[in-house]
Amino acid sequence: MKSRFFWHAVILGLLFLPGLPVIAEDLLMARVPMTFPEAMLKLQSTLKKYNHTLSRVQRVDIGLTAKGYKTDKYRIVFYGQADEIRQLADEYPQLIPYLPHKIAIFAEEEETMLVAVNPEMLFQADDPNLQAIMKKWHNDLQLIFKDMRQE
């Protein structure tokens, strides 16, 4: 008897634990109400805030401009936690092309756009361990995007 009530209570509590809503979006997008240079700085500090290391910034616009194409500011920001990335690449090689994590950041006039893929949609795995990893990866992205939208 006791255990039944107990588990009901726990399960109910868990079900409605506050957290970010689970929305099955394929892509995460955010419009950052800042110019590109401001948004870039803020992204760097936001990644740090969530304990991620920025490993590299790929300057897509510079490459294009050098080849004579016109483009607005466009970068890809790579980030992660060294141990986590090493472990993921080791245990789940199918993730390798998507590691380290990345966010595209580009100017749209006076504002800046962020785009990242929702890993939970990309890898719909049965493996509960992998599911948990994807959930964390997605959750971190949601937190980063939320901060970037200045909410």
Partner: peptide, 28 residues
């Protein structure tokens, strides 16, 4: 007793948080 308390706790968490979820505004 304990289980009652837990059940109530569970229910109240449910109530509070589902209210929070419902109040996610159109603007947000």
């Amino acid at each position: 007793m304990l289980c009652r308390a837990l059940l109530l706790l569970g229910l109240s968490i449910t109530a509070i948080t589902s209210q929070a979820a419902a109040s996610k505004s159109g603007e947000e």
